[in-house]
């Protein structure tokens, strides 16, 4: 009776482990434009990993407000994975349309799987910072410090997620560029001696579309974070699921927190 749930959990854990180790973004699979990881696995992994970090983030409110702040732990554990998934939801249609126009090899399902995989890697790294965030939460009263610390961890995790995506895209579009005949020869001869030649490889249009999209994703993500706030929960303000104030933005608020840290 219990073997079925156990085996599906094991399969899920194995898939997540393979994903983090880059098993689903190997060159041979990307050559044929395939990413063989179920969307469901990626979504569940993102939800669980995001919730873990959300809990660590929300503990600050709990320590500052006591029992009243427990709801913030729950709210943050829901909002962190939502932040990433909603950002993807908002930006994915425009990416798909542009990459289809640029004749990218990735079809809609594979594009979505690749981006979800990058989100899951991003959230896995973020979750691994959870112990450090929780530790600092227990030692810190300073709200600006917690804001800056969380922004730093989101930034580092985002860069790693970006690196994962960039590596996969280079593998994918490297093949594509080669197929289009735009890759130069690696060697040329001088006086009959073969020499290694380094040349700048022109990137295909479809890869440039992804690069532009990454910038848009970053900006939308930052603003989505602003809309979904509070995540940490300012101790001077009562708990709300969403702040009513719509003025300002993520970047202005981060600089303000940095300024307050030095006051």
């Amino acid at each position: 009776m219990t073997s079925e749930p156990q085996s599906s959990f094991r399969r899920f854990a194995r898939d997540v482990d393979q994903l983090l180790r880059g098993g689903f973004t190997q060159e041979d699979q990307l050559k044929i434009g395939k990413i063989e990881v179920p969307v469901r696995t990626l979504v569940i992994a993102s939800l669980v990993l995001g919730a873990l970090y959300g809990c660590a983030m929300g503990i600050y409110s709990w320590t500052m407000r006591g029992g009243e702040g427990v709801i913030q732990v729950f709210a943050s554990s829901v909002k962190v994975p939502l932040l990433f998934l909603l950002t993807l939801l908002v930006t994915f249609p425009s990416l798909y349309v542009s990459s289809a126009l640029a004749r990218s090899r990735l079809l809609v399902g594979d594009s979505l799987r690749l981006l979800l995989a990058a989100v899951a890697v991003n959230l896995a790294l973020l979750a691994s910072f959870g112990t450090v965030t929780a530790f600092f939460t227990l030692c810190t009263d300073s709200y600006p410090f917690m804001v800056v610390l969380n922004v730093a961890f989101f930034g580092v995790a985002g860069l790693v997620g970006l690196g994962f995506l960039r590596q996969a895209l280079t593998r994918l579009f490297g093949e594509e560029a080669s197929a289009q005949g735009v890759l130069p020869r690696e060697t040329e001869e001088a006086d009959g001696i073969p020499l290694m030649v380094k040349r700048r490889v022109p990137r295909p249009v479809s890869q440039r579309v992804f690069s532009v999209w990454l910038v848009i994703y970053g900006i939308v993500g930052a603003q989505m974070g602003w809309i979904l706030r509070p995540f940490v929960g300012a101790p001077s303000l009562p708990f709300t699921w969403f702040r009513q104030q719509r003025e300002s933005n993520f970047f202005a608020a981060t600089f303000e927190a940095l300024g307050k840290l030095f006051q």
Binding site: D17, L20, R21, G22, L125, A127, S128, T131, V132, V160
Partner: peptide
């Protein structure tokens, strides 16, 4: 405290 992140960074970097 730092071990989970160290493990994850090792994993993600292959």
């Amino acid at each position: 405290i730092c071990l989970p992140n160290y493990f994850m960074v090792n994993t993600v970097l292959g």
